[in-house]
């Protein structure tokens, strides 16, 4: 991410415009960060001070809001649920999506391109189109949640961890990313191994998978943030507080008209922290995931 224009010339040409740029960018990034600064501030402000004028640096910082959020608002349970769902979804995407992408890239057969594009086209379908059918399908899973073999009579997988997980288990976008990745790998390696009598499975696990560590990181990040940040699907299929995911638990704060901003912001901090942590430790993965899907696609 560096440019190659000679630095010396630029300095002589527009020394003052470099300063303007630095000032402008500093102001812009501070402005962009303002909401987060206030989020942190409010999270540490005692609730009785949270009404009326609040100062950016709390006079008497407290951890009480975090306790309220975790215990009273049952955020702890929501964090556990979301972690379970996220673990399953990350695993599912890392195994199934990567295998599928690899197969699309390496094993050509009649119609594979057509199947691939049909698969990618699904990413452009609005969520609301599939939301209602998916809801009814989840409700109608046979033998689950008191259903008979026709999937009627009970609640199916509604309000279960399985129901929360299934629609995210393989994201078409991740199949796309891994096909792109393996298409760029050299096929000579596989041919050489095949001549030596290695099985297809062995070729994948011993040669290509070790090369694909950056891909695994990107897909894991995509799967994790996708499911951790999801709101609409859990909103639709969960009905009890015990099954809530993190974003839903935050929305629960809005139910009674008198919103307690202190505990709410403490909750937002707790829910946001894992995603920001993943971002800080893997910025390259985040950004290459975003741009790989577009520029090279």
């Amino acid at each position: 991410m560096t440019t190659s224009t000679p630095l010396r010339r630029r300095r002589s040409l527009d020394g003052h415009s470099a300063l303007t740029r630095a000032v402008l960018l500093t102001v812009m990034s501070l402005l962009v960060m303002v909401p987060f600064l206030w989020m942190i501030s409010l999270a540490f402000t005692p609730s009785e001070q949270a009404f009326g004028s609040v100062s950016l640096i709390p006079a008497s910082p407290t951890l009480e809001n975090f306790k309220t959020a975790l215990v009273d608002a049952n955020l702890l349970r929501a964090l556990t649920n979301s972690a379970l769902v996220a673990a399953a979804v990350v695993l599912g995407n890392c195994v199934i999506a990567i295998l599928a992408g690899y197969a699309f890239a390496m094993l050509k057969f009649r119609g594979s391109t057509a199947v691939f594009f049909a698969l990618i086209a699904t990413t452009a379908i609005p969520v609301s189109v599939t939301l209602i059918p998916l809801f009814l399908m989840t409700k109608g899973v046979p033998f689950a949640g008191g259903n008979d073999f026709l999937g009627q009579g009970g609640s199916g997988l509604l309000n279960t961890i399985a129901g929360l997980t299934l629609p995210h288990l393989v994201m078409p976008m991740n199949i796309f990313l891994s096909r792109q990745y393996f298409s760029g790998a050299s096929p000579e390696l596989a041919e050489a191994a095949r001549v030596d009598g290695a099985s297809e499975w062995r070729i994948f696990t011993r040669i290509y998978l070790p090369l694909a560590k950056p891909l695994v990181a990107v897909i894991a990040i995509f799967a994790f943030t996708g499911v951790w940040d999801d709101f609409l699907w859990p909103l639709v299929i969960t009905s009890s507080a015990e099954m809530q995911t993190v974003q839903l638990a935050l929305a629960r704060f809005l139910v009674d008209g008198n919103i307690q901003y202190g505990p709410l912001m403490a909750g937002v901090v707790l829910v946001t922290l894992p995603v920001v942590a993943v971002f800080i430790f893997n910025q390259r993965g985040f950004i290459s995931g975003l741009t790989d899907g577009s520029v090279k696609g």
């Binding site: 940040d229 974003q247 829910v271 920001v276």
Partner: peptide, 12 residues
Amino acid sequence: ALYIPHIVALTA
């Protein structure tokens, strides 16, 4: 700094 709003959930 400019990228962080993108990674935090819309709900949050």
